[in-house]
């Protein structure tokens, strides 16, 4: 059993389980699933400010912070008890293109060759971690949601703005990954 759990889960097991978050959150407390809001709540909680965007009763949405704390714990529990010891099984074409940029370690969730404390102080690492992180925080708030709030919750509840947002997420990602990322990785 534990062996089975340790393997990566196929999409047709994981996807439906992730989708169940939508009804679960609605049923346990009428909550609209969305994770990027937690970034706003953390800003509002940690930096008392007169900026209207952060001047609201963030405590009203504290459930969201409990939920993301749970995600962190979930990541830790997996690491401790049922982590997959093998590197991710990628398309050989992807493995080949990663090798071109010196990315050989495919273990774990992030490429250790790119994301580490030393590379943070290189242009490449800074662009990926700090630049990328900034765009994630800025873009999700401007768009009013992320993959969870728009692509899962929004699409599940048939909201057309979420379909537009999801298409834009994908278009942005495809453009960056195919057109610009090769140059950044070559830095």
């Amino acid at each position: 059993m534990l062996e089975f759990i340790r393997q990566p889960w196929p999409w047709y097991v994981a996807g439906p389980l992730l989708g169940l978050t939508v009804p679960i959150l609605l049923l346990i407390g009428n909550k609209a699933f969305g994770i990027s809001s937690s970034l706003r709540h953390i800003c509002a909680a940690c930096l008392p400010t007169k900026v209207p965007f952060f001047n609201y009763e963030w405590k009203r949405d504290i459930w969201n912070l409990f939920f993301v704390a749970g995600i962190l714990i979930g990541g830790l529990l997996t690491l401790l008890f049922f982590q997959n010891p093998n590197p991710v099984q990628l398309n050989p074409d992807m493995v080949a293109s990663l090798e071109k940029y010196g990315i050989n370690n495919l273990k774990g969730t992030v490429p250790a060759d790119l994301f580490n404390w030393t590379s943070l102080f290189t242009i490449r690492g800074f662009l990926l971690m700090v630049g990328g992180g900034f765009l994630v925080g800025f873009g999700t708030r401007y768009a009013g949601g992320c993959t969870s709030g728009h692509s899962i919750f929004g699409l599940s509840t048939l909201q057309w703005p979420s379909l537009v947002a999801t298409c834009c997420f994908m278009i942005g990602g495809i453009i960056m990954s195919n057109l610009f990322l090769p140059y950044i990785l070559a830095l």
């Binding site: 994770i35 990541g75 999700t140 834009c168 997420f169 990602g173």
Partner: peptide
């Protein structure tokens, strides 16, 4: 905002939920 997040998603390889999970995962 959607496009900007898309750029960030491709750069970091993560959206907000996975960021928390990656930290928890070590």
């Amino acid at each position: 905002g959607g496009l900007l997040f898309g750029f960030g998603w491709a750069l970091t390889g993560a959206c907000p939920g996975p960021l928390y999970a990656q930290i928890g995962n070590g």
